[in-house]
Every structure is written in structure tokens, then in C-alpha cells.
Design a protein around this nucleic acid. Structure first.
Lengths: 215, 215
DNA sequence: TGCTGTGAAGTGCTTCACAGCG
DNA sequence: CGCTGTGAAGCACTTCACAGCA
């Protein structure tokens, strides 16, 4: 816990937006922009200017009055505040289509999310090498999580096997899970689960299009 | 616009939850559950019981007082309300790792989201067959969108090419875009964009874990 | 002077609590 | 009698508006 958070509770929505700010700021940095003020940054992120200032103020005072924010230092500050200024070691469970796809997605590692071990319960898959990693049996998980300092679990099984996968992860001592399977899972209170489900956004599009929102 | 929405504005959050309800209800249906009341359904979705009742009430009266909701009819009603009770035809732009991965993800088609045409601007990829579809040049997009009744665009390019991809889609008359690239895009007002970004959830996990939320 | 940081006001979603129906 | 559907209350996030600093 490096940077002590200024105030108690930080809205979940703020965390989501910080991820967007990083995205946009990194784009600006690449274009050579060195300083930006809250309003243009806000516009690029489709939010309100005060929102940006308030979100950042939860973590400290990063701006210069009358000037704005320095892009590069701001990126670093946000990353530090979020705790993404370091490597996070990840175990992936479920080496099917989706799992393999995500293993090939190079952006994970670039951003510090490093898949270091992969598991499956299918005996035909165990031992196979995928993207440079050997597929291990789920019963080796406890040992490997411990030995390899793994902190995060990623579930990419079919929906009906997600619950069991999460059980394995929890038993291995994992307390942060990212669930890519399209089903809900039950875990003890101290375990945090985040869901990644493309269909939520598909459904939103479909609904709005059906309602004639965009015509 | 089949089912006229009962009240004017429906919270965005409600739409997201409806997607979750479908997920959970389909699981229940598969287990043979025929009727469920709001509280157990709510618990399975990690929300409050009144929330479920209120969300559903936006679209009509689907329940039986003193009994609950019939699972299968409820699924159909929600799907109809969302506009996902039919096929949506999709163009995918960017046949790289991520694009290929999503083409292999069979759940899309199962849920009515059917990728029917794929595009790339790389001359070496054009003509290649991926998952049964020929890669077309982006300049053919306008014609194909029209001919094939495509309504939705999916962007799976690298971040720096997402803006150009969206321009092609908009020029072809697409008004609903799902952006899987990790960059923001600018579109005319009448075009609706939804972002799918895994890193939002990763960052949330990392932040909460760093704050010692789960220990 | 210009833009940040922030109390105060505003808005919209969530939860409560219960009338009303099956 | 139990559970839905819903007005009213509560709460949290967003936006406003401006004091205060560079």
C-alpha cells in the first residue's frame, strides 16, 4: 500500500474511469503531448471535466493550477494509485478456445498481467504446450500457486465448469478472480470476483438499436 | 420495436443486469427449475430482490403474485425486451490475434450474434480464409454491409487503427459498434459505441487487492 | 489569468416497505 | 399466506460553481 488513499471510499465507477484515463493518456503521450488540462482529457474519455478532477483528487494533487496535468507523470501516478505499476502473476484455468485466444493476446503481458501457469482438467490436454506453457492438471494448482507466487486466477472454462475452477483457485489460496466464463460463481466473502462478459455489451447495443436510439 | 416499454427511461445498469438474469435463468432452466421468485434469483445474481422486481417491471408484469416467475417464459420475455430474440448480423474489422480468437468463440453465434463478414486492411491477409470466412478489403465494406444486411460492427484492430476502422464502419452505414481495441474512438452522435476492455476489470482487481480489500 | 481542487447542489439509481393480488 | 409490483425514502455518484493557487 504505497500511496495512502486520501479519502475512505472510492467509487467503483472511478476505478473504471481511471483505466480509461490511462488508455487515453498513453495515446496522448505517444503523440508527444506533454501537458493536458482536465477538460480536453475529459472530452476524449466521454466524461465531464469535474469528474476527471474529482477522480484524480481521490488519490492526491497531480495537477498544476493554471496549467493542467503533465501527461507522463500523471500516467505513472494513476498506475501507482491503482497498483498496476508492477507485475501481477496469473494462473489461467481452462485451456479451450477462449483460453488459448487470451494466451495469444500480447497486451496482457505488456500491461503487467503475466500468465505464468495454465491448467485444465482434460487428461488429453495435460502436458500439451500452449504459447510456451505446459498445461497442468488442476490438482497441481495449490503447489504451483504457492511456488510461483501467483496472485490472480483467470477462468476461461465453459460456463458449467466455472464453479469448479473457482473452487480450485480458492483452495489454492487465490483471492482475486477474473471470470471470462459466461456464468456466475459463488466464492467466500474474502475472494473478489470480476466478470468479463462480452454479451453484456452486445445486449446493450441490441437493446438500444431496437429502441431506435440510433437512427 | 415489439414490446412497448412501459416507462420512458431505462437505466443503463438495468440493461446490464438483465444480461446477468438471462445467464442465471438459463442455468436454472438447464437444472430443471421451472419457477423462481425474485429473492433467490437476486441472490444468484448478487443483487437485491427489489432490484430484480423493479428491473423486470420496466418491461411488463411477468410474475405471479404469491408464486414467482416461470423460468422459461421469463427468459423469452427478457430476450424479447432486449431485442436479442433474433439474429444480429455482424462485420468484424481486424483479423489479427484477437479477431481470430473471437471468430473461434462459438458462443457468439449461439446467442444470435453472427459474424458474417470479416475485413482487414493488410493486403497479405486479404483473401485468406479464417473460420470459413474470406478476409475482405475494408474498401468493400460499404457494399457488403448493404448486401448482407449487416447491422453491427466489431472492431478488433490494434488500438492505433481503431479510429480508422470505425470510420469505415460509419461510412458503410453501421450505427452500432462494439470496440474490443483498447483505445477510444470518436463517432457521430447517432452511432452507438460499446467498449469491451478486459483491463478495466484487471485494474479493479489489482486496485482492490492492493488496498487489502481481500485479505 | 487559467485551471485545479472541492464544498454544495443536483440527479439518478437502489433499497425499503407495504398495498394488492393470486 | 406469499410474493409481486411500486411509491417513497435513502444513498451514491455526478455536475456545478467558485475559491485559491501557480
Amino acid at each position: 500500500m504505497n500511496r495512502p488513499v486520501k479519502s475512505k471510499h472510492i467509487p467503483r465507477a472511478t476505478i473504471r474511469r481511471l483505466a480509461t484515463y490511462i488508455q487515453v493518456l498513453e495515446g496522448l503521450a505517444q503523440e508527444g503531448v506533454e501537458v493536458i488540462s482536465s477538460n480536453p482529457l475529459a472530452e476524449a474519455c466521454d466524461v465531464n471535466g469535474s469528474q476527471v478532477r474529482k477522480d484524480l483528487a481521490y488519490f492526491g494533487e497531480f495537477g498544476i493550477r493554471g496549467v493542467g496535468y503533465q501527461v507522463k507523470p500523471l500516467i505513472d501516478s494513476i498506475k501507482e494509485s491503482l497498483g498496476v505499476d508492477r507485475e501481477w502473476r496469473i494462473a489461467l484455468v481452462g485451456v479451450g478456445n477462449l483460453g488459448k485466444a487470451l494466451l495469444n493476446h500480447t497486451e496482457f503481458r505488456q500491461r503487467g498481467f503475466n500468465i505464468v501457469a495454465i491448467f485444465d482438467c482434460d487428461p488429453f490436454k495435460i502436458g500439451e504446450i500452449v504459447h510456451g506453457l505446459e498445461v497442468h492438471c488442476t490438482k497441481d494448482m495449490r503447489m504451483m500457486v504457492d511456488e510461483m507466487n501467483i496472485e490472480v486466477g483467470m477462468i476461461t472454462t465453459p460456463p458449467e465448469r466455472a464453479q469448479r475452477a473457482s473452487q480450485h483457485l480458492v483452495d489454492a489460496g487465490i483471492t482475486s478472480i477474473l471470470n471470462f466464463a459466461s456464468s456466475r460463481i459463488k466464492t467466500p466473502e474474502h475472494v473478489q470476483v470480476e466478470y468479463v462478459d462480452f454479451f453484456h455489451q452486445f445486449y446493450t447495443l441490441a437493446f438500444n438499436a431496437s429502441q431506435g436510439l440510433n437512427r
